[in-house]
């Protein structure tokens, strides 16, 4: 049986207490919420924190609060199952519901949290393996080694941002509230991620993601398409979140964000620009979809060949945009 390495476990009941424990233990400490991403990594000895600081009992993390005409805030500790159970969320933010419904499988969704999903560690076929396997390979740059087997010539880690929630939050213009030892700050979801497989978050280890604020998105349409081999369990190896605001038949504002094709979610501004000011008609959509595929450079470190993922990015971009245009393409399979 794969077992966890020993650790100390803290279950603070307030943010202050949590922050204190985190600063007491410094880099040896690790925040845990649902544990669905962390515990497998600990069992594979990818990370071995000495202290786990659970945020489950902190009341500020567990709310869903609607603000009149100003959107909603979701506590970071709200489980994915709770997000899905909330019909108003699905109506206001269809992309969020689509993304959460496609995460892993039902038990994981009743354990995992929205904050946990946004902070999920980057993934790589060379990294998400047991200690034995990684030792046999000769450890990689992300953990214990000096070379990245994906791109051995380079100096950076190419592990892949594998959150379904991240591209959606960026597309919906979410703001994330963080609290740290030096106070709190709110940053745009887009600023939360860094293009680095190791330091993939702009969050300091001792900062706690407290809540997600989704702005009111009246007049917007949104969706999320996900590529993976099976209809459940699998992480995304391509995720595409699209949100458009339509005004008199034309796209006033668009956001197209790709997940799981690089170390951070990627906004495709060229594609957004193609859509903005135009009606969502087939030729516009096709041009935007081509721009999506052009802008990404997936590597060979997830399921599916990287060129295949690049190709499907444009197919899914088209399908997502047609869906939002109200002219869904028929004959297409997959994409959840």
């Amino acid at each position: 049986m794969l077992r966890l390495p020993p650790f100390q476990y803290f279950a603070p009941r307030s943010l202050d207490e949590a922050l204190r424990i985190l600063s007491d233990h410094g880099p040896e400490a690790q925040i845990v919420a649902g544990g669905t991403d962390l515990y497998p990594k600990m069992k594979r000895r990818q990370i071995q924190p000495r202290a786990l600081v659970s945020v489950r009992r902190i009341p500020e993390l567990s709310h869903i609060a609607w603000m009149a005409h100003d959107g909603v805030t979701l506590g970071a500790g709200v489980t994915l199952a709770r997000v899905l159970a909330c019909e108003n969320l699905a109506i206001a933010y269809p992309a969020l519901a689509r993304a959460c419904a496609g995460i892993a499988h039902p038990p994981i969704r009743s354990m995992g949290t929205i904050g946990g999903n946004l902070c999920i560690d980057t993934r790589c076929t060379y990294y998400d393996q047991t200690f034995f396997w990684r030792e046999a390979l000769g450890f990689c740059l992300k953990k214990g080694g000096t070379v990245c087997p994906v791109a051995p010539g380079g100096t950076r880690c190419w592990a892949v941002s594998s959150s379904d929630g991240a591209p959606v939050m960026i597309a919906l213009g979410a703001q994330l509230r963080l609290i740290g030892p030096h106070g709190e700050r709110t940053i745009a979801a887009e600023e939360f991620y860094r293009d680095d497989g190791i330091q993939y978050l702009a969050k300091a280890p001792e900062e706690i993601l407290v809540e997600v604020r989704l702005p009111c998105r009246e007049g917007w349409r949104s969706t999320y398409w996900k590529l993976r081999r099976r209809g459940a369990i699998d992480f995304p190896v391509l995720g595409i979140a699209v949100a458009v605001c339509m005004e008199s038949g034309r796209c006033r504002e668009a956001r197209i964000v790709l997940g799981a094709v690089g170390s951070c979610p990627k906004r495709i501004r060229e594609a957004e620009g193609i859509l903005e000011g135009n009606p969502l008609e087939p030729d516009v959509i096709e041009a935007a979809a081509r721009a999506v595929s052009r802008a990404i450079r997936p590597l060979e470190n997830t399921d599916f060949l990287h060129l295949y993922r690049k190709k499907v990015a444009s197919v899914f971009a088209q399908r997502a945009l047609h869906e939002l245009a109200g002219t869904p393409l028929t004959g297409g399979l997959s994409g959840t």
Binding site: L137, R230, G231, A232, I233, F235, D303
Partner: peptide, 23 residues
């Protein structure tokens, strides 16, 4: 398997793809 090293590429139930009820 990975060439050269002979490492199994997918020794887990996540990476080795066994169909779910949905397939």
């Amino acid at each position: 398997f990975r060439s050269r090293l002979g490492l199994h590429k997918a020794p887990s139930m996540l990476d080795y793809k066994s169909p779910t009820p949905l397939e």
